[in-house]
Write a protein that binds this DNA or RNA. Structure first.
Length: 432
DNA sequence: TCTGGGGTCCTAGGACCC
DNA sequence: TCTGGGGTCCTAGGACCC
């Protein structure tokens, strides 16, 4: 059996833990640069605030409504998630963290005789809430797709006391008959529209199709979902392979026009990619830079360009990845456009310990130097915060008025961000 | 004026090889 | 008139997830 543990409105709940005034209110959290709505409280959902709504349209669309708006605070959400996950890890032998707000737990079959999943789930949800402040909903079922279904019921109906179990055929069919096909894990908007047009409205309707017709219309991935809904466990998530590509991309608060303006954020993205590679114990063979204009501005010339540079040998250090990214930028930069967004993508990853055997002709001493430098950078930045130590090319020239050099991160808008309650000593809540 | 970020998997079709 | 057979690898595009 699997248990899916899902944080309720994760980002909003993180904020409410430290700002209880937000309880019971319509609350939304915005994306980077305060661009659009990425999380909503149930009250905001009830008002009809759609996900992805551009922030500037919020006041137009919902005049006179009291909606609390917050910038996203990923430092806080990441830390709160780690707290929740550590409790889950202690409660089950096998855990797979699926996203910042979800984890699948595998429940040991051998203990079923003594094990009541319903009581176990209710107890776990209550403990997570009491210890971290985070409300979670738990679904227990023989497959991951059914566990997802169960968790939605646990979330929707308070009667379940935060845990819904689907453990026999009668319950499975009953649940699926009440479950819209569009809400099934693995069925996206496109497929849902097609199915609904064919009169398939619930998950139960879908399970009544033949395996063959599902396979023909939706390929092997659709068939897996179909089998999972029938109670056959066939989606494996453990042993996730090394990431094949790692991407860091951002929109700019203001459009950029010169090569120099783009070089600063791209240096920062490159170093971020390098750090992610090192975290995975990987090295990359290719570095791609991607720049694009603002597609919403019909009045401006549009362009979207990318260029890939092959590294002489697999790399994961800030200097090597950054140098390649700037080389790629030189190759794709064009004058006469207003660039709104850029990305660095590192790909062709190999495990870092394969380096020695496969690439004997590289300058080993230089490589060692980069490795040591990166290790120091990781240590400093972990302790004192991201980008405490960074390459000079990731900084804008010193501002003559303030005497300060700034980074790309300094330019990102987050006007309504909450304090770093759990990770910064100066931000710890004072009780007066 | 203002519109997010980061991944995975699958398939079809073309290039290429013998 | 007639134009093989079988395989791999790569890429682009679509669909999905959070």
């Amino acid at each position: 059996m699997y248990a899916l543990v899902d944080c309720d409105n994760c980002y909003v709940s993180c904020e409410r833990v430290f700002n209880p005034r937000l309880e019971g209110k319509a609350v939304v959290v915005l994306s980077n640069n305060d661009g659009c709505v990425v999380a909503r409280s149930p009250e905001a959902k009830a008002l009809g605030v759609p996900e992805g709504l551009p922030f500037y349209q919020l006041a137009e669309r919902f005049p006179g409504k009291e909606i609390h708006v917050l910038s996203s605070n990923y430092t806080l959400y990441g830390d709160m998630s780690a707290r929740v996950m550590s409790l889950l890890r202690a409660s089950a032998p096998d855990i797979f963290i699926y996203s910042i707000d979800e984890a699948f737990l595998t429940l040991p079959e051998s203990e079923y005789v003594y094990f009541n999943p319903k009581t176990w789930g209710e107890t776990l949800a209550a403990k997570v809430k009491r210890w971290t402040g985070m409300p979670v909903s738990i679904g227990v079922a023989p497959t991951k797709t059914l566990a997802k279904v169960a968790s939605k019921f646990a979330k929707r109906y308070p009667g379940y006391r935060k845990c819904c179990v689907i453990d026999n055929d009668e319950r499975r069919k009953k649940a699926l008959s009440l479950f819209p096909i569009a809400d099934v894990w693995g069925i996206g908007r496109r497929t849902a529209n097609r199915l609904e047009a064919a009169g398939i409205r619930t998950a139960l309707d879908f399970t009544r199709l033949s395996a063959e017709s599902v396979r023909n219309a939706m390929t092997i991935t659709g068939l897996r979902t179909w089998m999972e809904l029938h109670g056959r466990d066939c989606i494996t998530l453990d042993h996730l392979p090394r990431k094949q590509a790692i991407c860091t991309s951002r929109s700019f608060p203001k459009m950029q026009t010169t090569r120099e303006e783009l070089a600063v954020p791209l240096s920062s993205f490159a170093a971020r990619c390098a750090a992610k590679l090192r975290h995975e114990h990987s090295m990359a063979q290719y570095v791609t830079v991607f720049i694009s204009t603002n597609p919403f501005r019909d009045d401006l010339a549009q362009s979207s360009i990318n260029h890939t540079v092959a590294l002489p040998a697999p790399a994961s250090s800030d200097p090597e990845i950054t140098a390649a990214a700037l080389k790629a930028l030189d190759a794709c930069f064009r004058e006469g456009f207003q660039w709104k967004r850029a990305a660095v993508i590192v790909s062709g990853t190999v495990p870092e310990d394969e380096l020695q055997t496969s690439f004997l002709d590289i300058p080993v001493e230089l490589k060692m130097k980069h490795t040591k430098l990166s290790a120091v950078a990781d240590k400093v930045n972990k302790r004192l915060g991201d980008e405490t130590l960074l390459l000079a090319c990731a900084m804008r020239a010193t501002d003559l008025e303030t005497g300060k050099a700034t980074t790309f991160r300094d330019s990102i808008l987050h006007a309504r961000r909450s304090p770093f309650y759990t990770t910064e000593i100066r931000d710890i809540i004072e009780v007066l």
